[in-house]
């Protein structure tokens, strides 16, 4: 209880500072003060403060969409991760568990390798459709007349992910050098080259899932008691599960379509937040969103600074940060799991 009082302002300040840094840092160094002015200009559509035209241009068309995309995708992935962990009552679950990431990757791979001239929109679109379709297949596999079994859901997720992996393997084998590079980069995820319509789409998705998740936060808490117990509390458990899974598939599908696969945000962020404020979803969800957004922005700053003037895919940075953390989690849980 007393923790959350400082957490809100801290996270909010952190978000503002990291966003400002993200807009300022890059091959063209812009001072935070100038970038703040440039953002005010951009937001109001007028030239209230004087900013050099080339700096204004870079901020409007490169840095700002990139930063906002990172914020939106980070917040989406973290919230979906928190919801999946609640839904599966397993703190080590992540959005990929229902097959959305692997399905999206397969969809993208098909486009990249078989339709090399389709353009990036086709890649994004097919990634989204394939991600959603895979999720629905996984859900169908696990559904039975007496309800949806979580164990079956997990197993079908694993099986479908393996199948998608095999498909990507075949496509990789068939791909030419150019497609191979695209494929590899896409699977590592990046917010570079963000475009405004992706940004807007991601923001809409974020708004919808945040609103809906918030509505379900109390029900998610009850679900942690166990499915039978939640039913006894009068919850329509199967409807809730379907709703949350579809929302996650949409959120993650759009995120993946816009940026490629960015791992570990959905796994690690909710876990971190839960360690500080506890498992109550009414707080966990909004705070995870804020922390996820901040972490992805920081990771993106890292991605373009570490090997400047070249860039790392941001998915690589999150994996480099997230994987060791995940291993620590596993080690801490080991005693309980054995």
């Amino acid at each position: 209880m007393e923790n959350q009082r400082w957490l809100w302002p801290c996270l909010l300040t952190g978000l503002v500072i990291t966003s400002l840094l993200s807009v300022s840092i890059g091959p063209l160094q812009i001072s935070p003060y100038t970038s703040f002015n440039a953002m005010v200009n951009w937001a109001t559509g007028q030239e209230l403060a004087s900013v050099a035209p080339h700096e204004q241009l870079v901020i409007n068309n490169v840095r700002l969409p990139r930063t906002i995309l990172a914020l939106a995708v980070g917040a989406t992935l973290a919230q979906c991760g928190a919801v999946m962990q609640g839904l599966f009552r397993n703190p080590l679950a992540d959005p990929g568990i229902i097959g959305v990431s692997s399905g999206a990757a397969l969809g993208a791979a098909i486009c990249i390798v078989l339709f090399p001239n389709g353009g990036e929109y086709l890649v994004a679109f097919s990634a989204f459709v394939a991600g959603l379709a895979t999720t629905l297949i996984v859900y169908r596999l696990a559904a039975s007349p007496s309800g949806t079994s979580v164990v079956l859901l997990l197993l079908s997720g694993v099986a479908v992910a393996a199948l998608a992996g095999a498909g990507i393997g075949v496509l990789t084998y068939m791909a030419n050098d150019m497609a191979l590079r695209d494929l590899t980069l896409w699977q590592m995820g990046s917010v570079a080259g963000a475009q405004w319509h992706y940004v807007i789409l991601s923001l809409i998705a974020l708004a919808v899932i945040s609103w809906q998740f918030n509505q379900s936060a109390k029900a998610l808490n009850a679900l942690l008691l166990g499915e039978a117990e939640a039913r006894h509390l009068g919850l329509d458990v199967d409807k809730l599960k379907l709703k949350l899974i579809v929302l996650c598939a949409i959120g993650v599908g759009i995120a993946v379509a816009a940026t490629g696969i960015i791992g570990f945000i959905g796994l690690v962020v909710p876990h971190l937040v839960r360690m500080i404020i506890g498992p109550d979803h009414r707080l966990l969800l909004p705070l995870s969103a804020m922390l996820g957004a901040a972490i992805l922005v920081v990771a993106d700053i890292g991605a373009r600074s570490i090997v400047a003037p070249s860039e790392l895919p941001v998915g690589l940075v999150t994996a480099l940060l997230g994987a060791p953390f995940f291993i620590i989690l596993l080690l801490k849980q080991r005693n309980k799991l054995v």
Binding site: P91, N221, L224, G226, E229, G278, P279, D280
Partner: peptide, 12 residues
């Protein structure tokens, strides 16, 4: 309904 075993593992 009071369940026989309640498997709540999250730190509520």
């Amino acid at each position: 309904v009071l369940p026989q075993h309640a498997s709540l593992t999250f730190p509520f």
